[in-house]
C-alpha cells in the first residue's frame, strides 16, 4: 500500500541558510507524526512547503500517490489536506460558526455563488463540527473576542470541514495552558482514530509529543537527525545533544 504522505529529498534555502536539507519521511493513515527540533530547525518551513505556501528548491511530495509540489495551497487543500497555524489564522470579522461555514462553502464549491445568505448555509454541518471540538456554545461569538485556546479549537473544526485525510498542525497547543494542551491533543487523537486520518504536527511541549505521537522526527538545522517511536527517540544520544539534555529530560 502506498503511504498517504511520502516526502523525499525536500530542500529549501533562504539566502545562504539551508532551512530544510534533504528531508524525507512517510506517513500513513491513522497515525500522528510529530516533527520536533529546536527553534529555527526548519519545522514551519517544512509545513509551508507541504501545504504549498512555499516552493522547495528540490524534492518530491506525494500525497495519496500524487505529486503535489508546485500546486497552490488552495489546490492542495482540495485534495484533502487541512491546516492549522502556529499563530491562529481565523476570520476576525466573522462568528465562530461562520468561520466553519466558510470552509464548508468552499468545500461545496459555493464560493462564486450569489444565491442565499451565506450565514444560513451549511449551518448544521458547521455546528456538528463545532460540537466535535466542544465549541458549539460559542458559535455566535465573533472570532476576534475568543480566548486563544478556543481559537485553536475553532481552527481544528475549520480544518476538518473538507473531511481531509491529512491534517497539518503547526504547534497546535502553543499559547495554551498545560491542561488545555492535553485536552486538545486527546481530542485530536480521538479524531484521528475515528476518521482514520493522518496528522503531522510540530510541537515544543515534549510532554505532549511523547504522550501522543506514534512516531517522532527530529530536525536540527534543516536536517533530520533522528526518527522513530517515542521511546527510541527519547533515548537517542543525538537528540539529547540537540536539546542539551534539558527538554528531553523534562519530557521523561
Amino acid at each position: 500500500m502506498t503511504p498517504l504522505l511520502e516526502v523525499r529529498g525536500l530542500s529549501r534555502a533562504f539566502g545562504g541558510v539551508q532551512a530544510v536539507d534533504d528531508v524525507g519521511f512517510t506517513l500513513d493513515r491513522g497515525r500522528l507524526l510529530a516533527l520536533i527540533g529546536p527553534n529555527g530547525a526548519g519545522k514551519t518551513t517544512c509545513f509551508n512547503i507541504i501545504n504549498g505556501q512555499l516552493a522547495p528548491d528540490r524534492g518530491s511530495i506525494r500525497f495519496a500517490g500524487r505529486e503535489i509540489v508546485g500546486l497552490a495551497p488552495h489546490r492542495i487543500w482540495r485534495l484533502g489536506v487541512g491546516r492549522t497555524f502556529q499563530i491562529t489564522a481565523t476570520y476576525p470579522s466573522m462568528t465562530v460558526c461562520e468561520n466553519v461555514q466558510m470552509a464548508l462553502l468552499s468545500h461545496h464549491r459555493r464560493l462564486y455563488s450569489f444565491r442565499g445568505r451565506a450565514a444560513a448555509q451549511y449551518r448544521d454541518e458547521a455546528l456538528d463540527l463545532l460540537a466535535r471540538v466542544d465549541m458549539a456554545e460559542q458559535e455566535d461569538r465573533a472570532c476576534s473576542v475568543l480566548a486563544y485556546g478556543d481559537l485553536k479549537r475553532v481552527e481544528l473544526a475549520v480544518a476538518l470541514a473538507n473531511a481531509p485525510s491529512l491534517l497539518l498542525m503547526d504547534e497546535p497547543t502553543a499559547g495554551m495552558s498545560p491542561r488545555e494542551r492535553l485536552e486538545l491533543m486527546r481530542l485530536t487523537a480521538a479524531i484521528v482514530s475515528e476518521r482514520d486520518i493522518a496528522v503531522l504536527f510540530t510541537e515544543h511541549d515534549m510532554d505532549v509529543v511523547f504522550r501522543h505521537a506514534d512516531h517522532i522526527l527530529v530536525l536540527d538545522r534543516g536536517k533530520l537527525i533522528a526518527g522513530g517511536a517515542p521511546e527510541a527517540v527519547r533515548s537517542d544520544p543525538r537528540v539529547r545533544a540537540v536539546y542539551l539534555g534539558s527538554e528531553a529530560d523534562a519530557g521523561a
Binding site: 501545504n51 504549498g52 505556501q53 497552490a72 495551497p73 488552495h74 487543500w77 482540495r78 487541512g82 491546516r83 497555524f85 489564522a89 481565523t90 476570520y91 476576525p92 470579522s93 466573522m94 461562520e98 461555514q101 466558510m102 470552509a103 462553502l105 468552499s106 468545500h107 464560493l111 462564486y112 451565506a118 450565514a119 475549520v158 470541514a161 473538507n162
Partner: peptide, 17 residues
C-alpha cells in the same frame, strides 16, 4: 463572504481552498 474572508486572512483563505 468569500471576498471578506480573503480580506480577513489570506493564509487562512488559501488553506481552505
Amino acid at each position: 463572504y468569500a471576498m471578506r474572508a480573503c480580506r480577513d486572512s489570506v493564509v487562512r483563505s488559501a488553506s481552505i481552498g
